[in-house]
């Protein structure tokens, strides 16, 4: 997992509520045996028409919008527990997803794969969408240390929650596996005590 402390970026607005994991990555793309490459099929059925022609009306295909922040409607990531959804968003190049609510399992998966989910209030989310629609080049500043999201060039600063452990994971570029690997000595000393019959 990459380190994450601070990010200044423009954002892509996905003004849709209840985006489920089947939309994020349709089931037919789950046959792969590796985690990479899912970004190609992120929002596949919204991004492309049947037959493979690109859907110019979908925001990811709009040249106006770019950046490493995805701003999405309420209840993002609902549906199946597939971890592939978080893999796809991150593989596409997003580092942060902002919404007013995340489905529980998606949030856990995102935190595990280094995609920072930022939950703000519904009003704050509306403000974000307004700023982006007025100016697609609006920049946002995410600061993990102070746990804040700021609309750059304004004094609008929104706080967000993250557990102490997960915050350290992001700051140090750790995921759960890196954390577990970092306590190998402790695991080894635990192993010394395991009785032979187990």
């Amino acid at each position: 997992m990459e380190k994450f402390k601070h990010l200044t970026s423009t954002a892509v607005p996905l003004h849709i509520e209840d985006v489920d994991t089947d939309q994020i990555i349709p089931a037919r793309f789950l046959k792969a045996t590796s985690r990479e490459g899912f970004g190609e099929n992120l929002f596949r059925d919204w991004r492309y028409h049947k037959g493979g022609k690109s859907n110019e009306n979908f925001v990811l295909n709009n040249p106006l919008y770019s950046g490493e922040i995805l701003v999405a409607g309420h209840n993002f990531g609902c549906g199946s527990s597939r971890e592939h959804a978080a893999w796809a968003i991150s593989d596409y190049g997003f580092k942060v997803v902002v919404s007013s609510f995340f489905a529980d399992i998606f949030k856990g998966n995102a935190l595990n794969v280094g995609l920072l989910p930022i939950q703000i209030t519904t009003d704050q989310l509306s403000i974000l969408f307004e700023h982006i629609s007025e100016d697609a080049n609006t920049e946002f500043v995410v600061d993990l240390e102070t746990q804040t999201l700021q609309i750059k060039k304004t004094d609008l600063v929104f706080p967000f929650e993250i557990s102490k452990y997960k915050k350290e994971c992001f700051q140090n570029g750790y995921d759960d596996i890196d954390y577990l690997l970092s306590i190998q000595e402790e695991i080894k000393s635990y192993e010394q005590k395991i009785p032979a019959f187990l």
């Binding site: 527990s81 971890e83 998966n109 595990n112 794969v113 759960d176 596996i177 954390y179 577990l180 690997l181 190998q184 695991i187 192993e191």
Partner: peptide
């Protein structure tokens, strides 16, 4: 467990 936890156990023989 889920697949990323399978990976956790592969890597460390532990789960968080």
């Amino acid at each position: 467990i889920g697949t990323s936890q399978v990976e956790q156990v592969f890597a460390s023989q532990c789960l968080l």
